[in-house]
């Protein structure tokens, strides 16, 4: 079971004199739901971007899905999926057009796209709306679809950047159920969120403060360590308040 798909050692990213990320270490195992928390500007986005192969770290080591973030960014991109609350799908394309587009981006053949699009639509009961513009769908559906699209090329790891912002509580929970489903099929999920209760749904979490990882472990471990009732208290304990430039 314990096979690390993300290995990070001493990873650092500097912007000028400013350490956005400072000597962080962690590992994420296959099939794990890994919560990546931190205050605004703590460096979460920078780490995500490094792991997705979008920016090159200043120093340190990081392997993602078996590939090095130094030099093998293209291989990394082929083996990961990405979904964020802000951007994911095109509002002015239909459901099916969106799926086809992303399938094409990841180099799937037409037959594969067709087959996977069909299954996706079946799975989420989108049959009736598949030819509707995305803009006309409720937010919850869009998010579900965005998530499945992020999975369309069967990536080893999916990065979810605040995937549930603004959704109603029921849809939010349904979304987490699909996250678990994906985890059971062996996909690793790397999730950021501002909902502290969602942190508890993760197998393990890391808490970033000022560019460093100040807490790492299962929610239960962290709560015990900080004598906290819930993750909210852990967060407040760890992230001592400090203002800095984002």
């Amino acid at each position: 079971m314990s096979e690390a798909v993300i290995q990070v050692e001493n990873l650092t990213k500097k912007f000028g004199d400013f350490y956005a990320v400072k000597n962080i270490d962690f590992e994420v195992e296959r099939g794990e739901v890994f919560g990546f928390l931190g205050a605004n500007g703590a460096g979460k986005t920078t780490v995500m971007k490094m792991l997705c192969g979008l920016i090159t770290p200043t120093s340190g080591k990081a392997m993602v899905a078996g590939f090095n973030v130094f030099g093998q960014q293209n291989e990394i991109k082929k083996n990961i999926g990405y979904m964020s609350q802000r951007f994911s799908l095109y509002e002015d394309l239909t459901v099916i057009e969106n799926i086809t587009f992303y399938g094409g981006i990841y180099g799937l053949t037409n037959a594969e796209i067709k087959e996977r699009a069909y299954r996706l639509i079946e799975m989420h009961g989108l049959g009736e709306v598949k030819n509707q513009l995305l803009a006309s769908l409720p937010l919850g559906w869009k998010q579900k679809l965005a998530f499945s699209v992020a999975l369309i090329h069967r990536p080893q790891i999916v990065f979810l950047d605040e995937p549930t912002g603004g959704v109603d509580p029921i849809t939010r929970r349904q979304f987490w159920e699909s996250i678990y489903e994906a985890a059971h099929s062996g996909i690793t999920l790397f999730v950021t969120t501002h909902y502290m209760d969602e942190a508890e749904y993760c197998d393990r979490i890391s808490m970033m403060v000022d560019g460093e990882i100040k807490g790492l472990g299962t929610p239960t471990e962290l709560k015990q360590l900080h004598h906290a009732k819930n993750m909210d208290e852990v967060f407040v304990n760890l992230a001592r308040k400090k203002e800095f430039i984002e």
Binding site: G38, A39, N40, A42, E162, G165, G166, H194, M196, D232, F235, V236, A239, K241
Partner: peptide, 11 residues
């Protein structure tokens, strides 16, 4: 408070 971290939100 949308998109703001839990500590800033509390504050």
């Amino acid at each position: 408070t949308t998109g703001v971290d839990p500590i800033s939100r509390k504050e």
